Amino acid sequence: MRNKFVLYTLLVLSAAPALADDLGKYEDESRAIVASFMQKLMAENKKALMEGGPESAIKVCKEIAPGTANDLSRQHGIKITRVSLKVRNPLLGTADEWEQKTLKQFEARLAQGEKPEMLESAEIVNEPNRKYFRYMKGIVLQQGCVVCHGTGEQLSDGVKARLAEDYPYDQATGYTPGEVRGGVSIKRPL
């Protein structure tokens, strides 16, 4: 019995450096995937704003963002999604337990003066059915985002009407620049 324990302990200890290497590799890959995802969304949003104003940008978040996330998920064997504590689309943006905890940590870190670009978290978590690598990059509201996510006074009548039509359960307004809007979350099965 003692020999089995010693063997198990040695196996666990010898795997620790490999696990740390995997964690670093997964973090780097996740950063690159999220950066690509966000760059595409920002470019599409900018294009939509120039062509049709804020009402057109809503379509980017409604159609292009989920489609791009699905494509990246299939391509990389992961699940990538945008989540928030105040969701616009409850079917796609509701944070799970790990994501809720992480978003609340982001809010606290930002309140303590951490720079928005540093808001990220990564870890390996055990869930009932298996282990996962979890990663999240925070999304902090920028000045231009208030046209769709700001206070009621900042939203045009056209944006309000489009949001009411496309997102009848929308909670994703009332933000001011510099607040955590949500995060881009990656879940990778191990």
Rank of each mutant, 00 (worst) to 15 (best):
M118H: 14
Y132H: 09
C61H: 09
A20I: 10
S84V: 02
R134G: 08
G158Y: 01
P17S: 01
L7M: 05
G158H: 01
A161N: 11
A95T: 13
K25G: 07
P128A: 13
I78E: 13
E179V: 10
L11R: 07
Q75Y: 02
G77P: 02
A111Q: 15
Q100K: 14
E114T: 09
M38T: 12
R130V: 03
L10T: 05
G138Q: 04
L49P: 00
H149S: 00
N45M: 06
S73I: 09
N129A: 15
G113W: 13
R74N: 10
S185M: 13
D71H: 08
E44D: 12
C61N: 08
A122M: 11
Y167S: 04
A164Y: 05
K137V: 02
Q39D: 15
E153G: 03
R162K: 15
R134N: 13
P90E: 14
H149D: 01
G138C: 07
E55A: 14
L11H: 07
V125C: 04
T151G: 09
M136S: 00
E120S: 05
P17R: 00
I124K: 00
A16M: 12
R162I: 03
Q39P: 07
I80Y: 04
V159R: 03
R2A: 14
G52P: 00
E120N: 01
